[in-house]
């Protein structure tokens, strides 16, 4: 189902109240053509379920993986993603932009 930003924050709060481990990822900076605007959210639970979007699908997998560690350790992380490197098949943005994503635990 399509989720609005407010649905994402509501889900994060609901998951936490249910006792799940939860992390919230926020796009805090973009350069060039970026798929999602600053302020966009992705909520992730301890099982790797997620709602929302920080990049329209390009780097969500990597953010979800980092979120698992943020949930385990409790320390926020700042992630940066740049242009996809076709030769190395690294995680990145095929649109050519760069984004910074802040990932924090909901405690």
């Amino acid at each position: 189902m399509y989720a609005r930003e407010e649905d994402v924050l509501e889900a994060a709060a609901r998951w936490r109240r249910e006792g799940r481990g939860v992390a919230l990822a926020t796009v805090i900076e973009t350069w060039g053509s970026a798929p999602r605007p600053v302020g966009s959210h992705l909520a992730i639970d301890g099982e790797g379920n997620f709602l929302g979007s920080v990049s329209g699908g390009c780097v969500e997998g990597a953010v979800v993986a980092e979120a698992a560690e943020v949930i385990a350790q409790g320390t926020p992380r700042l992630l940066e993603f740049g242009v996809a490197d076709a030769t190395a098949w690294q995680v990145g943005l095929s649109c050519g932009g760069r984004i910074a994503v802040y990932v924090e635990k909901v405690a």
Binding site: E6, L9, E10, A12, A13, R17, V106
Partner: peptide, 14 residues
């Protein structure tokens, strides 16, 4: 983020 902060944001939006 404390759950209380998240709940406060959600309450203001509602």
């Amino acid at each position: 983020m404390e759950l209380a902060v998240l709940e406060a944001l959600n309450a203001e939006r509602a």
